[in-house]
Amino acid sequence: MAVEVRIPTILRKHTGGEKAVPADGDTVRDLLGDLDRRYPGIAGQLLTEDGSLHRFVNVYVNDEDVRFLGALDAKLADGDVVAILPAVAGGG
């Protein structure tokens, strides 16, 4: 499935400054794999060592948080828009 992936500022160093890039995948997991083939190293910023989505990275499919869509198993369709946003988090 061909989808558009919106890339946050902090990850644009991987995409040559591109704000949005095309990528393919039937699931979010496949998509991130494809993204990492196109832009090596980017998946390492999004996934933990055991391959799950990093707690402080939000991924949305058509504005829905993928944690409510099956996380990395969330299905994708042609024309979907996937957005990646670092969580806004901290604490003191």
């Binding site: 939000n58 504005d63 948080d65 946003l85 969580a87 901290g90 604490g91």
Partner: peptide
Amino acid sequence: EASPTFYVVEPKAQLRAMT
């Protein structure tokens, strides 16, 4: 997180605001 020592902006609200 609704916590006195930690915060995470609720993800959907974050996306809506940023959009």
